[in-house]
Amino acid sequence: MIVVNTEEVPGRQITQVLGLVQGNTIRAKHAGRDIMAGFKNLVGGELKGYTELLTESRRQATERMMQQAQQLGADAVVNVRFTTSAITGGAAELYAYGTAVKLG
């Protein structure tokens, strides 16, 4: 499946729009990572543990979105957008959404 964040798939014709598809995940980190991140805050720099966690979570959200598109029989998802929000202490929501389309 083609996933792009442009409005159309470059070089291809969209024949049918199937509608909005979305995927989300809410992840909590474990305490160990949290403590390490606390130490890291003393000297600054990248929080590698969080980068990995959020990367993996975002991939999962994207996969869920693609699954939904597959169920609709889509060939591609266009105009994909991401959002991240810290909803409660210790958890972040990652959300991916886009439009499922059929290609000619």
């Binding site: 991140a37 890291k40 805050n41 929080l47």
Partner: peptide, 8 residues
């Protein structure tokens, strides 16, 4: 993606 921490 990049997660950045500020230092003390």
């Amino acid at each position: 993606q990049y997660v950045s921490a500020s230092d003390y």
